[in-house]
Design a protein around this nucleic acid. Structure first.
Lengths: 142, 142
DNA sequence: TATTGTTATACTCTATAACTATA
DNA sequence: TATAGTTATAGAGTATAACAATA
Protein backbone atom coordinates (compact mmCIF):
# COMPACT_ATOMS: atom_id res chain seq x y z
CA UNK A 1 0.00 0.00 0.00
CA UNK A 2 1.32 3.39 -0.89
CA UNK A 3 2.18 5.77 1.93
CA UNK A 4 0.80 8.66 -0.10
CA UNK A 5 -2.94 8.96 -0.79
CA UNK A 6 -4.12 7.18 -3.91
CA UNK A 7 -3.78 9.56 -6.83
CA UNK A 8 -6.48 10.51 -9.28
CA UNK A 9 -4.97 10.16 -12.78
CA UNK A 10 -6.86 13.18 -14.07
CA UNK A 11 -5.72 15.30 -11.14
CA UNK A 12 -2.14 14.20 -11.76
CA UNK A 13 -2.31 14.92 -15.48
CA UNK A 14 -3.98 18.26 -14.95
CA UNK A 15 -1.43 19.35 -12.34
CA UNK A 16 1.49 18.26 -14.48
CA UNK A 17 0.10 19.92 -17.59
CA UNK A 18 -0.53 23.09 -15.60
CA UNK A 19 3.01 23.22 -14.25
CA UNK A 20 4.38 22.68 -17.75
CA UNK A 21 2.13 25.43 -19.10
CA UNK A 22 3.04 27.82 -16.30
CA UNK A 23 6.73 27.24 -16.92
CA UNK A 24 6.23 28.26 -20.54
CA UNK A 25 4.17 31.31 -19.56
CA UNK A 26 6.69 32.38 -16.94
CA UNK A 27 9.50 32.07 -19.45
CA UNK A 28 7.57 34.07 -22.06
CA UNK A 29 6.91 36.79 -19.49
CA UNK A 30 10.54 36.83 -18.41
CA UNK A 31 11.61 37.24 -22.03
CA UNK A 32 9.58 40.46 -22.03
CA UNK A 33 11.13 41.38 -18.68
CA UNK A 34 7.80 40.87 -16.94
CA UNK A 35 6.58 38.63 -14.16
CA UNK A 36 3.80 36.21 -14.99
CA UNK A 37 1.38 38.34 -13.00
CA UNK A 38 2.37 41.48 -14.88
CA UNK A 39 1.88 39.79 -18.24
CA UNK A 40 -1.47 38.53 -17.05
CA UNK A 41 -2.55 42.01 -16.00
CA UNK A 42 -1.61 43.36 -19.41
CA UNK A 43 -3.54 40.56 -21.12
CA UNK A 44 -6.62 41.24 -19.01
CA UNK A 45 -6.51 44.98 -19.66
CA UNK A 46 -5.79 44.46 -23.36
CA UNK A 47 -9.43 45.12 -24.19
CA UNK A 48 -10.94 46.34 -20.93
CA UNK A 49 -10.70 49.16 -18.44
CA UNK A 50 -11.11 47.96 -14.86
CA UNK A 51 -11.05 49.47 -11.39
CA UNK A 52 -8.37 48.42 -8.94
CA UNK A 53 -10.74 46.29 -6.90
CA UNK A 54 -12.22 44.54 -9.94
CA UNK A 55 -8.72 43.73 -11.14
CA UNK A 56 -7.68 42.45 -7.72
CA UNK A 57 -10.79 40.26 -7.50
CA UNK A 58 -10.19 38.95 -10.99
CA UNK A 59 -6.65 37.92 -10.08
CA UNK A 60 -7.47 36.77 -6.58
CA UNK A 61 -5.09 39.30 -5.01
CA UNK A 62 -5.35 41.86 -2.24
CA UNK A 63 -5.94 45.44 -3.24
CA UNK A 64 -2.63 46.48 -1.67
CA UNK A 65 -0.90 43.95 -3.91
CA UNK A 66 -2.65 45.49 -6.91
CA UNK A 67 -1.39 48.92 -5.92
CA UNK A 68 2.18 47.66 -6.09
CA UNK A 69 1.70 45.83 -9.38
CA UNK A 70 0.08 48.85 -11.02
CA UNK A 71 2.71 51.17 -9.54
CA UNK A 72 5.52 49.25 -11.17
CA UNK A 73 3.76 48.84 -14.52
CA UNK A 74 2.81 52.52 -14.51
CA UNK A 75 6.42 53.53 -13.86
CA UNK A 76 7.37 51.56 -16.96
CA UNK A 77 4.69 53.21 -19.05
CA UNK A 78 2.69 50.02 -19.59
CA UNK A 79 -0.39 51.00 -17.59
CA UNK A 80 -2.02 54.24 -16.49
CA UNK A 81 -4.39 55.24 -13.72
CA UNK A 82 -7.47 57.39 -14.32
CA UNK A 83 -10.21 58.59 -12.00
CA UNK A 84 -13.45 56.65 -12.32
CA UNK A 85 -16.11 59.02 -13.65
CA UNK A 86 -18.90 57.49 -11.57
CA UNK A 87 -17.25 56.96 -8.19
CA UNK A 88 -14.87 59.45 -6.65
CA UNK A 89 -13.23 56.74 -4.58
CA UNK A 90 -12.47 54.42 -7.46
CA UNK A 91 -9.43 54.35 -9.74
CA UNK A 92 -9.57 52.86 -13.23
CA UNK A 93 -6.56 51.12 -14.70
CA UNK A 94 -5.93 51.34 -18.44
CA UNK A 95 -3.36 49.83 -20.74
CA UNK A 96 -1.15 52.21 -22.70
CA UNK A 97 -0.20 51.88 -26.36
CA UNK A 98 3.22 50.65 -25.27
CA UNK A 99 1.55 48.22 -22.85
CA UNK A 100 -0.71 46.87 -25.57
CA UNK A 101 2.28 46.24 -27.79
CA UNK A 102 4.03 44.33 -25.03
CA UNK A 103 0.83 42.37 -24.37
CA UNK A 104 0.51 41.43 -28.04
CA UNK A 105 4.11 40.33 -28.31
CA UNK A 106 3.68 38.33 -25.08
CA UNK A 107 0.57 36.58 -26.36
CA UNK A 108 2.30 35.70 -29.63
CA UNK A 109 5.32 34.39 -27.75
CA UNK A 110 3.10 32.29 -25.49
CA UNK A 111 1.40 30.71 -28.49
CA UNK A 112 4.76 30.10 -30.12
CA UNK A 113 6.36 28.62 -27.01
CA UNK A 114 3.34 26.45 -26.30
CA UNK A 115 3.29 25.07 -29.83
CA UNK A 116 5.57 22.09 -29.11
CA UNK A 117 3.04 21.06 -26.48
CA UNK A 118 -0.24 21.81 -28.22
CA UNK A 119 1.12 20.90 -31.63
CA UNK A 120 2.00 17.44 -30.44
CA UNK A 121 -1.54 16.26 -31.01
CA UNK A 122 -3.21 15.69 -34.38
CA UNK A 123 -5.97 18.19 -35.29
CA UNK A 124 -8.86 15.95 -34.27
CA UNK A 125 -7.34 15.38 -30.83
CA UNK A 126 -6.61 19.08 -30.46
CA UNK A 127 -10.28 19.80 -31.00
CA UNK A 128 -11.31 17.11 -28.51
CA UNK A 129 -8.89 18.39 -25.89
CA UNK A 130 -10.01 21.98 -26.38
CA UNK A 131 -13.63 20.94 -26.02
CA UNK A 132 -12.98 18.93 -22.87
CA UNK A 133 -10.97 21.72 -21.23
CA UNK A 134 -13.60 24.31 -22.07
CA UNK A 135 -16.31 22.13 -20.62
CA UNK A 136 -14.27 21.51 -17.50
CA UNK A 137 -13.42 25.16 -16.97
CA UNK A 138 -16.98 26.16 -17.64
CA UNK A 139 -17.90 24.59 -14.34
CA UNK A 140 -17.53 27.18 -11.61
CA UNK A 141 -15.35 26.21 -8.68
CA UNK A 142 -17.07 25.43 -5.41
CA UNK B 1 -9.99 42.72 -37.36
CA UNK B 2 -8.83 42.20 -33.78
CA UNK B 3 -6.00 44.34 -32.50
CA UNK B 4 -4.61 41.35 -30.61
CA UNK B 5 -3.08 38.40 -32.47
CA UNK B 6 -5.55 35.71 -33.48
CA UNK B 7 -5.86 33.26 -30.61
CA UNK B 8 -5.44 29.50 -30.77
CA UNK B 9 -8.46 27.98 -29.00
CA UNK B 10 -6.38 25.18 -27.50
CA UNK B 11 -3.78 27.63 -26.21
CA UNK B 12 -6.52 29.71 -24.66
CA UNK B 13 -8.21 26.73 -23.04
CA UNK B 14 -4.93 25.35 -21.77
CA UNK B 15 -3.86 28.66 -20.29
CA UNK B 16 -7.22 29.22 -18.62
CA UNK B 17 -7.34 25.70 -17.24
CA UNK B 18 -3.79 26.08 -15.96
CA UNK B 19 -4.54 29.34 -14.17
CA UNK B 20 -7.63 27.78 -12.60
CA UNK B 21 -5.60 24.76 -11.50
CA UNK B 22 -2.78 26.91 -10.14
CA UNK B 23 -5.25 28.97 -8.15
CA UNK B 24 -6.52 25.79 -6.51
CA UNK B 25 -2.99 24.55 -5.83
CA UNK B 26 -1.90 27.88 -4.40
CA UNK B 27 -4.92 27.95 -2.14
CA UNK B 28 -4.31 24.38 -0.96
CA UNK B 29 -0.70 25.25 -0.19
CA UNK B 30 -1.71 28.41 1.66
CA UNK B 31 -4.14 26.38 3.77
CA UNK B 32 -1.13 24.39 4.92
CA UNK B 33 0.78 27.63 5.44
CA UNK B 34 3.06 26.83 2.52
CA UNK B 35 3.87 28.53 -0.76
CA UNK B 36 3.10 26.63 -3.93
CA UNK B 37 6.80 26.04 -4.44
CA UNK B 38 7.21 24.64 -0.93
CA UNK B 39 4.30 22.25 -1.41
CA UNK B 40 5.77 21.19 -4.73
CA UNK B 41 9.15 20.49 -3.13
CA UNK B 42 7.50 18.35 -0.48
CA UNK B 43 5.57 16.45 -3.15
CA UNK B 44 8.73 15.81 -5.16
CA UNK B 45 10.68 14.60 -2.14
CA UNK B 46 7.77 12.49 -0.92
CA UNK B 47 9.37 9.39 -2.34
CA UNK B 48 12.84 10.49 -3.38
CA UNK B 49 16.06 11.85 -1.95
CA UNK B 50 17.66 14.45 -4.22
CA UNK B 51 20.72 16.67 -4.16
CA UNK B 52 20.27 20.42 -4.12
CA UNK B 53 21.26 20.82 -7.75
CA UNK B 54 18.98 18.04 -8.97
CA UNK B 55 16.09 19.62 -7.09
CA UNK B 56 16.86 23.05 -8.52
CA UNK B 57 17.05 21.66 -12.04
CA UNK B 58 13.80 19.80 -11.55
CA UNK B 59 12.05 22.98 -10.46
CA UNK B 60 13.82 25.25 -12.92
CA UNK B 61 15.31 27.38 -10.13
CA UNK B 62 18.76 28.67 -9.28
CA UNK B 63 20.72 26.79 -6.65
CA UNK B 64 20.77 29.85 -4.41
CA UNK B 65 16.98 29.89 -4.54
CA UNK B 66 16.96 26.25 -3.49
CA UNK B 67 19.19 27.05 -0.53
CA UNK B 68 16.61 29.51 0.72
CA UNK B 69 13.66 27.22 0.12
CA UNK B 70 15.35 24.32 1.89
CA UNK B 71 16.53 26.61 4.71
CA UNK B 72 12.98 27.69 5.50
CA UNK B 73 11.52 24.20 5.19
CA UNK B 74 14.31 22.80 7.34
CA UNK B 75 13.69 25.40 10.03
CA UNK B 76 10.10 24.22 10.13
CA UNK B 77 11.13 20.60 10.41
CA UNK B 78 9.68 19.58 7.06
CA UNK B 79 12.95 18.81 5.30
CA UNK B 80 16.46 17.84 6.36
CA UNK B 81 19.89 18.07 4.79
CA UNK B 82 22.33 15.16 4.74
CA UNK B 83 25.79 14.77 3.25
CA UNK B 84 25.86 12.86 -0.01
CA UNK B 85 27.82 9.64 0.57
CA UNK B 86 29.41 9.67 -2.88
CA UNK B 87 30.36 13.31 -3.35
CA UNK B 88 31.79 15.43 -0.58
CA UNK B 89 30.54 18.61 -2.23
CA UNK B 90 26.95 17.49 -2.60
CA UNK B 91 24.09 17.85 -0.13
CA UNK B 92 21.08 15.55 -0.22
CA UNK B 93 17.66 16.83 0.77
CA UNK B 94 15.23 14.50 2.52
CA UNK B 95 11.68 14.85 3.65
CA UNK B 96 10.97 14.35 7.36
CA UNK B 97 8.09 12.41 8.86
CA UNK B 98 6.38 15.70 9.63
CA UNK B 99 7.06 16.88 6.10
CA UNK B 100 5.60 13.71 4.60
CA UNK B 101 2.45 14.20 6.64
CA UNK B 102 2.11 17.76 5.40
CA UNK B 103 2.73 16.57 1.83
CA UNK B 104 0.05 13.89 2.15
CA UNK B 105 -2.50 16.29 3.55
CA UNK B 106 -1.64 18.77 0.81
CA UNK B 107 -2.09 16.18 -1.93
CA UNK B 108 -5.43 15.13 -0.48
CA UNK B 109 -6.54 18.73 -0.25
CA UNK B 110 -5.51 19.37 -3.86
CA UNK B 111 -7.54 16.40 -5.06
CA UNK B 112 -10.49 17.53 -2.97
CA UNK B 113 -10.32 21.15 -4.11
CA UNK B 114 -9.89 20.13 -7.74
CA UNK B 115 -12.88 17.81 -7.62
CA UNK B 116 -15.43 20.44 -8.68
CA UNK B 117 -13.34 20.92 -11.80
CA UNK B 118 -12.36 17.36 -12.64
CA UNK B 119 -15.63 15.94 -11.40
CA UNK B 120 -17.58 18.12 -13.81
CA UNK B 121 -17.02 15.60 -16.59
CA UNK B 122 -18.61 12.18 -16.90
CA UNK B 123 -16.24 9.21 -16.43
CA UNK B 124 -15.72 8.54 -20.13
CA UNK B 125 -14.74 12.17 -20.74
CA UNK B 126 -12.47 12.13 -17.72
CA UNK B 127 -10.61 9.20 -19.22
CA UNK B 128 -10.37 10.93 -22.61
CA UNK B 129 -9.10 14.15 -21.07
CA UNK B 130 -6.55 12.31 -18.95
CA UNK B 131 -5.31 10.44 -21.99
CA UNK B 132 -5.03 13.58 -24.11
CA UNK B 133 -3.18 15.51 -21.39
CA UNK B 134 -0.77 12.66 -20.80
CA UNK B 135 -0.04 12.40 -24.50
CA UNK B 136 0.45 16.14 -24.74
CA UNK B 137 2.76 16.33 -21.73
CA UNK B 138 4.69 13.32 -22.96
CA UNK B 139 6.05 15.48 -25.72
CA UNK B 140 9.19 17.20 -24.54
CA UNK B 141 9.29 20.96 -24.92
CA UNK B 142 11.54 22.42 -27.59
C1' DT C 1 -20.70 53.44 8.59
C1' DA C 2 -19.00 51.08 4.60
C1' DT C 3 -16.10 51.07 0.55
C1' DT C 4 -11.96 52.37 -2.39
C1' DG C 5 -7.44 52.81 -2.63
C1' DT C 6 -2.71 53.86 -0.71
C1' DT C 7 0.99 53.38 2.52
C1' DA C 8 3.84 51.01 6.00
C1' DT C 9 5.70 46.80 7.20
C1' DA C 10 7.24 42.12 6.89
C1' DC C 11 8.21 37.84 4.69
C1' DT C 12 8.76 34.71 0.73
C1' DC C 13 10.49 33.95 -3.84
C1' DT C 14 13.73 34.78 -7.13
C1' DA C 15 18.17 35.97 -9.47
C1' DT C 16 23.14 37.54 -9.79
C1' DA C 17 27.59 37.70 -7.98
C1' DA C 18 31.17 36.43 -4.85
C1' DC C 19 32.83 32.96 -1.99
C1' DT C 20 34.28 28.16 0.16
C1' DA C 21 35.06 23.40 -0.24
C1' DT C 22 35.57 19.38 -2.86
C1' DA C 23 36.57 16.86 -7.28
C1' DT D 1 39.85 24.09 -13.35
C1' DA D 2 35.20 22.79 -12.72
C1' DT D 3 31.34 21.69 -9.82
C1' DA D 4 28.29 21.90 -5.44
C1' DG D 5 26.50 24.69 -2.29
C1' DT D 6 26.10 28.94 0.70
C1' DT D 7 25.89 33.77 1.59
C1' DA D 8 25.13 38.63 0.49
C1' DT D 9 22.36 41.61 -1.84
C1' DA D 10 18.52 43.41 -4.34
C1' DG D 11 13.98 43.55 -6.37
C1' DA D 12 9.32 41.68 -7.13
C1' DG D 13 5.17 39.58 -5.27
C1' DT D 14 2.32 38.87 -1.55
C1' DA D 15 -0.47 39.76 2.77
C1' DT D 16 -2.01 42.34 7.06
C1' DA D 17 -2.99 46.47 9.30
C1' DA D 18 -3.66 51.33 9.59
C1' DC D 19 -5.02 55.22 7.19
C1' DA D 20 -7.41 58.98 4.05
C1' DA D 21 -11.05 60.12 1.01
C1' DT D 22 -15.51 59.35 -0.74
C1' DA D 23 -20.16 57.22 -0.66
Amino acid sequence: MPAAPAADPLVDALVQASFATMAVLTKAAADADLSLTQLRVLAILRDRRLRMTALADYLGLEKSTMSGLVDRAEKRGLLARAPNPDDGRAVDVLITVAGAEVADRGAAEVARALAPLTGALPPADRRRLTDLLVRMIGTPLA
